[in-house]
Amino acid sequence: MFWLRHSTGDGSPVAAGPGSEPVRGPRRINTVLAGVREFLTHGTTLGTVPTFVLSQLYEVADDRDLPMQARGEGSHLRYYAKARHRAAEPQEPVGRASDEEVLALLRACRSARDRFIVLLLARTGLRRSEAVGMRREDIHFILDASVLGCRIPGSHLHVVRRDNDNGAWAKSKRSRAVPVDFLLVQAYDQYVVERDTCLEARDSDFVLVNLFRPPLGAPMPPGALNDLFDRLSRRAGLADGVHPHALRHGFASNAADAGAVLDEIADLLGHASAASSQVYLHPDPQRLRSAVERVAALAPRRNG
């Protein structure tokens, strides 16, 4: 660990003292260590590396310290191999996008497509790759989708994992349907009218396509949403900027503030476990105050 942090790898002596800058960051160190562990583990299966080496790389841990939601079904103890060596990576928390920030982004939009994108992420919690990977067949914005062969009631969209030409990739293998409200349906209708004016876009099955820069009609790549939100944030005067993923956090938090329970939020976000959704919840301060105020005031209680 020390060598990876401070050695340049050119054979020169490692000179590290107080205040010295590391050569490699924690993420790079962990990437190297993961490769070494896999290489040596493979070597033990081939018999070219002694099996005792694995005990130097891993320790046996159990799931007693894991959250209840992460333990799975059953009451018996589960064991797993935990890497002994891992550099601590600094966490960069993503906050929720506030309603005021979403409104500011919408006011900064100059096209129906951009307004639809902002509302799509804010009102459904889609990941950026899920958004740009959507096809027109995934949009079921009608009250009775049975005419399309779909059993999901009400207006909704489908998130489907596909191998897309634009590099978009839905993280979850499990397809899901996400209900939508009238605001998103209205924004989509306006976008369809705008999209139809671009002749090159008419033959594309992707929902989100290039309308204002070449190649016209081509599906937007995931990175294009980052660029879009950077421009909108600057135009809206948002000093800290709003990342697309912050709208996903905002959606989950708004759903919780409105009374949705954790398993509902997990399904909407496409999480396999409800525990994964907890990091997306940033309760509104007023909801925290209401929770405290709902607790009965201290008073002597009579028995019997």
Rank of each mutant, 00 (worst) to 15 (best):
L298N: 11
G223N: 15
V185D: 10
A255I: 05
Y188R: 05
E59K: 12
D163V: 11
L157I: 06
F39D: 08
R84Q: 01
L121F: 03
M1H: 15
D181E: 12
G9K: 00
D99Q: 15
A246R: 05
R5V: 10
H76Q: 09
E21Y: 10
T31Q: 14
A16Y: 00
R5F: 04
R5D: 03
R231E: 04
A16I: 02
D257P: 13
R84V: 00
A112D: 08
T48F: 09
L211K: 01
R302E: 13
V292G: 11
F251Y: 11
L66R: 05
G237Y: 00
N210T: 11
L216E: 06
R235N: 07
A70W: 12
V53C: 04
F2L: 12
I142W: 08
A112Y: 04
L4R: 00
R213Q: 13
V207G: 08
A201H: 02
L269F: 04
Q190E: 15
D99V: 15
L126K: 01
T45R: 13
G17R: 08
I142S: 15
R71T: 06
D163H: 10
D284M: 07
S290M: 14
R176K: 00
A87K: 07
A299Y: 08
A260E: 10
H243M: 10
V102R: 13
T197G: 08
D267Y: 10
E21K: 11
A239Q: 14
P219M: 14
P222T: 06
G304F: 14
A255M: 10
S175P: 12
E21G: 10
G35E: 01
D138P: 05
A177R: 03
G217R: 05
L232K: 00
V23H: 04
F182I: 12
T31V: 12
V102C: 13
A112I: 09
L225I: 15
Q69N: 11
A177W: 02
D138H: 04
P90Y: 09
E137P: 08
I152Q: 14
A81P: 07
D284L: 10
T31N: 09
I29Q: 06
E194A: 10
P300F: 01
L46A: 10
A224L: 08
S129H: 11
A299S: 13
G11C: 01
D99G: 14
I142K: 12
S129W: 02
R195F: 09
V36S: 07
A201I: 06
R127Y: 04
A108N: 01
A15P: 09
Y280M: 02
V185W: 06
R128F: 01
S129G: 10
G250F: 06
T41E: 02
Y191V: 06
N164W: 15
V53R: 03
D257E: 14
P300T: 03
S7E: 05
L119K: 02
S290R: 14
D144F: 01
L126S: 01
V185E: 11
T31Y: 13
G217K: 04
F39K: 11
G250S: 00
K173D: 13
P221T: 15
V180H: 01
P26W: 00
R136Q: 09
L143H: 14
G133V: 01
S111G: 01
P18C: 09
E100F: 09
P179D: 02
M1T: 07
F206G: 10
A15M: 15
P244M: 04
L232P: 03
N166R: 03
A258Q: 15
G241R: 01
